[in-house]
C-alpha cells in the first residue's frame, strides 16, 4: 500500500511533507472513553487534519487519504475529502475503483467503502456495469451472503442495468448452496423487478416448480419455503388453490426421516385461509400424530399439536396459534 518499504516511514521524516505542520487532535480537558492510538494512527490523522484544514486537493493529499483509510476505513470525513480531491484533480475513476478493490480485499464489511464505490460507479455510468457485477461476484466467491455486496449488486442492476444473466447467476449460486438465503432473496428480486421478465405472476408457475424441487431435496431448508410463500404475496387465495403447493406439502409429510416443520406450518396457513382438506391429507396428518387423537377433532388443531411435538423450541407459539385459530377453520 505504500512506497516506503515494509516499515512505513513516518510522515514527519518524509521530505515531501516537510512543509506541513501536523495538527494534533484536541481532545479537551476530560475526554470520555479515550482510545489508545498507535503512533502511526496519531501521526497520519494529524497530517490529515492539516491538509483538510488547508483544503489541499493535491496528489499527495490523495495519497494521504489512502493511508488514513487503511488505518480507519470507517472515517467518513476522510472518504468525503478524498471525493473532493478526486473531483478537483479530475482523476480517472477506473483507477479509483482499482483502489477500492484493494481496500475491500482486506476490509469489505464497512459501509463507507461501498458508498464510495457507488459514488464512483455512478459517475462512470453504464461503462461500470460489468465491472461492478464482476466485483460483487468475486466478493461472493469468498462470502456468498455478503450483505453490503448484495446491496451494491441490487443498486447496480437498478441504476445501471445488467439484468440479462441475473436469474442464471442466482441459479448457479443455489446449485452451489441451496441453503443460501441471500441467493433466494436475489432470485425474488430478479423475478419481481427485472424489466426483462414478465413479473411475479408470469413467472409464478415455473418458479413454484423450481422451488418445489428444491424443497423436496431438502425439506428442512427454510429458504425455499419462504420463497414459495413469497411467490403468492398478497394473494393467499391463489396459494390455497394451487395444486402444486398442496401436493408438495403432501409429498413432504409422507416422507420419512425428514423435517415436517415447514410443511406443517405451510399447511396450517393454508387451512387458516380456507383450504378444504382431502381425505388423503387428513390421513397424512393422522399418520403423524403419535397418540390417536380424538377422532373428528379439526385438522388445524391437530396440525398445531404435531408442531408442538416436532418443534418443541416454539411450543408456546404453536399453542398460541392453536388457541387463536379462526373459528370457521376445519
Amino acid at each position: 500500500m505504500n512506497s516506503h518499504g515494509d516499515h512505513k516511514m513516518p510522515l514527519s521524516q518524509r521530505p515531501e511533507w516537510s512543509d506541513v505542520t501536523p495538527v494534533p487532535q484536541e481532545d479537551g480537558p476530560n475526554p470520555v472513553l479515550p482510545i489508545s492510538l498507535t503512533d502511526d494512527f496519531r501521526e497520519t490523522m494529524d497530517y490529515f487534519r492539516a491538509v483538510y484544514l488547508a483544503d489541499e486537493r493535491s496528489p499527495r493529499a490523495l495519497g494521504l487519504t489512502a493511508e488514513a483509510i487503511a488505518l480507519n476505513a470507517a472515517n467518513y470525513t476522510v472518504w468525503q475529502f478524498r471525493r473532493l480531491i478526486l473531483e478537483s484533480l479530475e482523476a480517472d475513476l477506473h483507477e479509483e475503483l482499482d483502489f477500492v478493490d484493494v481496500v475491500a480485499s482486506s476490509n469489505s464489511k464497512n459501509y463507507q467503502i461501498w458508498h464510495h464505490r457507488r459514488w464512483a460507479a455512478e459517475k462512470l455510468g453504464a461503462e461500470a456495469t460489468s465491472r461492478e457485477l464482476e466485483f460483487t461476484k468475486k466478493v461472493f466467491s469468498a462470502d456468498a451472503k455478503h450483505y453490503h455486496a448484495w446491496s451494491h449488486r441490487q443498486w447496480v442492476l437498478q441504476a445501471l442495468g445488467g439484468w440479462e444473466d441475473e436469474l442464471a447467476y442466482c441459479q448457479q449460486l443455489l446449485e452451489v448452496d441451496i441453503f443460501n438465503n441471500s441467493a433466494w432473496n436475489q432470485r425474488y428480486f430478479v423475478i419481481t423487478r427485472s424489466p426483462l421478465l414478465g413479473g411475479l405472476e408470469t413467472m409464478r408457475d415455473s418458479e413454484v416448480s423450481y422451488t418445489a424441487e428444491a424443497i423436496i431435496s431438502k425439506p428442512e431448508n427454510e429458504s425455499p419455503w419462504r420463497y414459495l410463500r413469497g411467490l403468492f404475496k398478497n394473494d393467499m387465495q391463489s396459494l390455497v388453490n394451487d395444486p402444486q403447493v398442496l401436493s408438495l406439502c403432501l409429498t413432504v409429510l409422507k416422507a420419512e426421516n425428514v423435517s415436517h416443520v415447514f410443511a406443517l406450518s405451510m399447511l396450517l396457513d393454508l387451512l387458516c385461509h380456507g383450504l378444504q382438506p382431502s381425505e388423503e391429507l387428513k390421513n397424512a396428518i393422522r399418520a403423524l400424530t403419535s397418540e390417536a387423537g380424538p377422532p373428528g377433532s379439526d385438522l388445524a388443531r391437530t396440525v398445531c399439536s404435531v408442531l408442538e411435538r416436532v418443534d418443541p423450541m416454539r411450543i408456546n407459539y404453536w399453542k398460541w396459534r392453536k388457541s387463536t385459530l379462526p373459528s370457521q377453520v376445519v
Partner: peptide
C-alpha cells in the same frame, strides 16, 4: 471506559457510539 485498546482505533470516528 478507562482506556479502549488500540484495536478500536479504526472506530475512532464513532467514539460517541463506543461511549
Amino acid at each position: 471506559y478507562q482506556l479502549m485498546p488500540s484495536q478500536y482505533q479504526g472506530q475512532e470516528i464513532n467514539r460517541l457510539t463506543l461511549a
